Amino acid sequence: MAERAARQRALAIGGLVLAALLAGCASGPRSGGDGAPSTPPADVSRVPDAEPRIEAIRGAGGTSKPYTVLGRSYVPIADDRPFRESGLASWYGTKFHAQSTASGEPYDMYAMTAAHKTLPLPSYVRVRNPANGREAIVRVNDRGPFHDDRVIDLSYAAAARLDLLRGVAPVEIERITNDDIRTGAWRRPGDGTQMAEAPVRVASVPQAGAQSVAVPSAFTTPVVAAPRAEVNDLAPMAAAPAAPMAQARPSANEAPPAPEAPPGMSTAGYWVQLGAFSQRDGAIAFQQRVAKGMPELAPLINVFTESNTHRVQAGPYASRDLARSTADQVRNGLQLVPMVVERR
């Protein structure tokens, strides 16, 4: 009996230690209790972009090691490949301020940083809010968000810049590779200078005692799966039901509403994903905006719904090259960041 009681006490102590590790690590699964500071600095939305610089990419081990969190396995990218993604963004604030990130750096909620499940640590991405056109360049130095429907976790300052502090919202992200930095291809008019006139003084993160803490080992298990390429395999999804449309002829300033996929339509082939939304109304509004900007694409645009996510996609195309050609036209014509996916 005494031996059994001793084992039970040891297990209880181990559980407390694990809980303490997770509570003190910004890269662990994030839940409630977080939020904005009670007295935020003035003009926090004017914090300058992160300045991209070439940083070494670890080919193996450390932050490039495959890991598992909450039963899901992830394989970090360990090269300089381009990367684009659309989906939902969240943000984290006071609860994790000054806690160690997966890279070992302390989390600074007033810096332009972000967390991503698989991008190299560190790396840089341009994040765009399609609802208002705002953009921000952030440095990825943490892992997360560990929610199936989210693609990036922004710092408080980055969320303020993009006007995303009200909650989870759709974004488009594009990696700035070391090659982009080397050639200067990442720069756009105003990058790195539009905020220089009004520097923001914010409280710095205390450096003393900061520990190098990666994703907790208790939640980390090696996996052998290889990362997927640019094209994702998607199971067929049902198209969202078409909204009622007026029969009146559209005015000269209005684009014809983009049609939904007709019943029985084959969805097999390559598609250009233009955006993904948590609310169907947002997806439909975005669909109509793209149709107005590129009328020739309107007949091909559909909204597909799965697991409460509404994807706006154009297609299908018979080959990946044809889909990529359309993606390039959308990128150049509408300044969006589309991605090519495959349906079977």
Rank of each mutant, 00 (worst) to 15 (best):
L88K: 01
M237R: 05
E172Y: 02
P82D: 07
P259F: 01
Y110T: 11
S103W: 07
Q279N: 15
E55W: 01
E172D: 12
L88N: 02
L18K: 15
P52R: 00
P338W: 14
W186E: 02
F219N: 05
V202D: 02
T113P: 03
A115C: 09
V231Y: 01
R182D: 14
P262F: 09
R289W: 07
P82Y: 01
Q99E: 13
Q287P: 06
S27R: 07
A6M: 06
A50L: 03
P250Y: 05
R139K: 15
L18W: 14
L16H: 15
R331K: 04
V171M: 14
R187M: 02
R344E: 12
S319V: 09
G192N: 06
A169H: 13
T94Y: 13
P222F: 07
A239M: 01
A214E: 13
A239S: 13
I176Q: 01
F277A: 08
Q279Y: 14
L154Q: 06
M265L: 06
S212D: 09
A248L: 13
S45L: 04
A261N: 10
P206T: 09
M112Q: 15
I176Y: 00
D179M: 10
G275T: 08
F219D: 08
A19V: 06
D328I: 04
R126H: 12
V47L: 06
G93E: 11
Q313Y: 05
L18Y: 12
V168Y: 06
P66V: 12
L164A: 15
N253C: 03
L121I: 04
R166G: 11
Q194F: 11
Q313S: 15
L300D: 03
G133H: 08
A283D: 08
Q287T: 10
Q313D: 12
T326S: 13
V213Q: 13
G275K: 11
P106F: 11
V140P: 10
E135P: 07
P216H: 00
A239Q: 03
V127T: 12
A229M: 04
R187G: 00
M237E: 01
G35R: 04
S27E: 08
A210W: 01
L22Y: 09
T113E: 02
S278A: 15
D43I: 04
I57F: 05
D321K: 15
F277W: 11
Y156D: 03
R4Q: 09
I301N: 08
T193P: 02
R201S: 14
S319F: 07
A229V: 04
R58T: 15
M245K: 12
P316E: 15
P82C: 02
S278N: 12
G35M: 05
P236K: 05
G15Q: 12
A210G: 03
R84C: 09
V69D: 01
A50Y: 03
L300K: 06
A169L: 11
H116E: 04
A78W: 06
K65S: 15
V215T: 00
V17K: 13
S73Q: 15
T68I: 11
P299C: 04
P295D: 06
Q313R: 15
